[in-house]
Design a binder for these strands. Sequence first.
DNA 1: TTAAATATGTGCGTAGCGCACATATCTGGT
DNA 2: ACCAGATATGTGCGCTACGCACATATTTAA
Lengths: 169, 169
Amino acid sequence: MENGIANLLGALSLAVMDRIEQGAREVVGRGGETPAALIVIGYGQGMTNDKLRRILGLSHSGTVRLVDRLVSDRLVERRAGKDGREVALHLTPSGAASRNELLASRISAVTSLLDVLSSAERKQLATLIHELLARQDTSEMDRFTICRMCDDRVCTNCPLPTNKGQHAR
Amino acid sequence: MENGIANLLGALSLAVMDRIEQGAREVVGRGGETPAALIVIGYGQGMTNDKLRRILGLSHSGTVRLVDRLVSDRLVERRAGKDGREVALHLTPSGAASRNELLASRISAVTSLLDVLSSAERKQLATLIHELLARQDTSEMDRFTICRMCDDRVCTNCPLPTNKGQHAR
DNA sequence: TTAAATATGTGCGTAGCGCACATATCTGGT
DNA sequence: ACCAGATATGTGCGCTACGCACATATTTAA
């Protein structure tokens, strides 16, 4: 039964995301892509509406309304971007605090599932997942999408490649 | 950095669920818990509204409206249950067909991520995930929730325990 | 200098969901 | 046999999250 592994990973992924999303909703009081948006905006201070849209995989208007919600929650500010068309999204102090809670909640949720494994088993699993991710054929944008909830405080050297579509040479 | 593994599993789980949900939406034209509902209803012919509610983690009214959508899409029929209060949910032939497409789409989505691993690596990963799931402290209802998208054609002997809260002895 | 591209905002509608309430059926104690 | 509570379903109403089509402002390129 060669599909057994796919089914197992599917079930585990569902369990993991259920727990992450539940925690995220408790922290920010909102669901959908809103928690991910808060994390993505926090990666740097140059985020624009349009980059965010592509990372989250939402429509343009959906992204504008999402940012509206973050602004009305006093978690994000719209500032002038370099380009006169762009809006530069910045976290407020409150937004940065919520983002940290969000990241901690996510790590905690996953850890609670992982800690039934021994240290050696966790290491083995980490190696396998690292390889699995490292061998995917992902563009830079794909990587941002997959990593839209990632904790940049613990994820040094992301395994995901960023060279999809580039010439092999 | 001991949280590295949690972050990696979180990222992988997000990537897996993104792909599963995208495929599911293409198959049934609906999102949220609707695809899972179709799969759960197909597990047996005794599913009721209330059991479904608990498995999906939705409110009562949300579940009623979800079933309304499945009925209006001609995928599910409401029949009389044994108990005069209950509604017995049954898949129509069209519903059973959609369910099969859904399960195939899910397995295919996960497999496309997995197939960068060697056969030996996949086997190793399967063993680890199997152990991880087998050691969770889950009730029977927890198990149905985690397995609400599982493919019962490929998942013989589910590793999840069903004895949370029972006395040790 | 002007058309196309880029980036954002808005009117409007829909899907998916929860809360509070109403109704029907079953169960258990007297 | 009867009636209060438990169980199961359905409904009115509102809200969140989102997409489509359109409008507007700025930059870029011919």
